[in-house]
Design a binder for these strands. Structure first.
Lengths: 244, 244
DNA sequence: GGTCATCAAGAGGTCTGACCACTCAGAGTG
DNA sequence: CACTCTGAGTGGTCAGACCTCTTGATGACC
């Protein structure tokens, strides 16, 4: 309690926990390129022994990385068993957004603005680069929504599929992952809003029309129009479904 | 091995692991709204007893949620000790992107396109909504980069700060978080590229000019110009620093 | 009465060692 | 040759002990 006055600046030492050291070790190998997609991690017991931590610490680290979609574990023996570097970004990102949206860390306006930014890009990319075969899932979702007297739940499902399919057709995986995660995190809130809508048939009809217009723009390879229509569609949807 | 032919469709049962059940339990409380930011979780031992799993399972679940920035643990006793619902989206998102970029799940073009989409939006939002006081950190980063004969590492640091500050000045936390995470995940690759540039002084001067132009557009509250300049700046930077 | 050292309690952090469940490879068997 | 069985190695789970940290109460001392 004495050296506070003008002493040498003591920077707080991190005091890392065991599992954080393990994460850092694995992350280091990944960033260094010595561990790439498909590679196996050593067995938990080995890793624990090598890093001088308990197996519990190793397992906690693996859980965190698994939660981020970086790693994937399989029980069993021989070929295929063990923990491997994976490429499953969706798993982690979706839960991440779902929880933080639910916690109110991001409110509706922010989500809408983000969706607009990402999906404008998706739409433009898809219009420019996607051929008819890439548009097949988009078309399929579009037609599924044309079912007469469709229930909000079903519609919402295909609606999600429609937007997600456009995102992936654009060929940009990062944009697509973020779009998927955001749209997915909004599925339940959107569904609740749809169920509370007074005139569902009317709303449904409008959404259908807008979807068809977007689809046409994509098929016409008109990037600007597709982007504009997508932005208008998203903004209008939220305005209708979440009136203030 | 007999009932395969036209038997009743057996859907695979999930076989969830213990920690996943714990996550689901906590996530359920969050989605239901009974657990919000600042609330404490029961002590690990209690939670384990209530959910009928071992403490290890509870700890693995908490680690996953901590990795996503949903929860935060503090040792000790009394007020302030324990595990709490938190709102730290950055922590998780940054590592997520850093690792997946390193793993090559997202390549450079995809990252650039995403940055353009997000930062165009940030720039426009900032130009529209931010007052001079919100622009202070942007200005500070700008001036820090004007230091003559600045080292690439230092420049890169302030460059990151500049773009991140714009993102936050826009007032959209989701866009800002994603922008921060992406920019941060590119810091090391960018730094490496800057160090390898043949004519650093020249590149540096160009980047400075573009930054100043963006700053002026923001101060002028010209959203369209700010967005256009930002897009051009990002695309040009990558074209110069990562020539093919 | 105030101030300070001390200590107990309660929280997370760690480790150990055991056992279970699953899966594959290969030995053994008809 | 085909099938079955078994062993071994992997992650999954658990129980229990102990450590460290932090707080708040206790009580001695001034």
């Amino acid at each position: 309690m004495s050296g506070e006055v003008a002493g040498p600046s003591w920077q707080p030492v991190p005091r890392a926990r065991a599992h954080e050291l393990v994460i850092a070790a694995i992350e280091g190998q990944i960033l260094a390129g010595t561990l790439t997609v498909g590679d196996p991690l050593p067995p938990e017991r080995d890793l624990a022994a090598r890093l001088q931590v308990s197996r519990a610490g190793v397992r906690e680290a693996i859980r965190v990385l698994e939660g981020q979609g970086v790693v994937r574990s399989h029980v069993g023996s021989g070929q295929g068993a063990g923990t491997f570097i994976a490429a499953l970004p969706s798993t982690g990102l979706t839960r991440f957004l779902r929880l933080h949206v639910a916690l109110g860390n991001f409110d509706l306006d922010e989500v809408v603005e983000s969706r607009v930014a990402l999906e404008r890009t998706s739409a433009a990319l898809t219009a420019r680069h996607a051929g008819p075969e890439d548009l097949a899932p988009v078309t399929a979702a579009l037609e599924a929504m044309d079912e007469p007297a469709i229930a909000p739940e079903t519609f919402n499902l295909h609606d999600t599929a429609f937007h997600v399919a456009i995102a992936w057709a654009g060929g940009n995986r990062l944009v697509a992952e973020m779009t998927t995660a955001i749209r997915d995190s909004m599925r339940l809130p959107l569904q609740a809003a749809m169920r509370q809508t007074s005139d569902w048939a009317q709303v449904c009809a409008e959404l259908r029309t807008e979807h068809h217009a977007i689809h046409t723009a994509l098929a016409d390879r008109d990037a600007d129009r597709a982007a504009e229509l997508t932005e208008a569609h998203i903004r209008r949807s939220y305005a209708v479904l979440f009136p203030r």
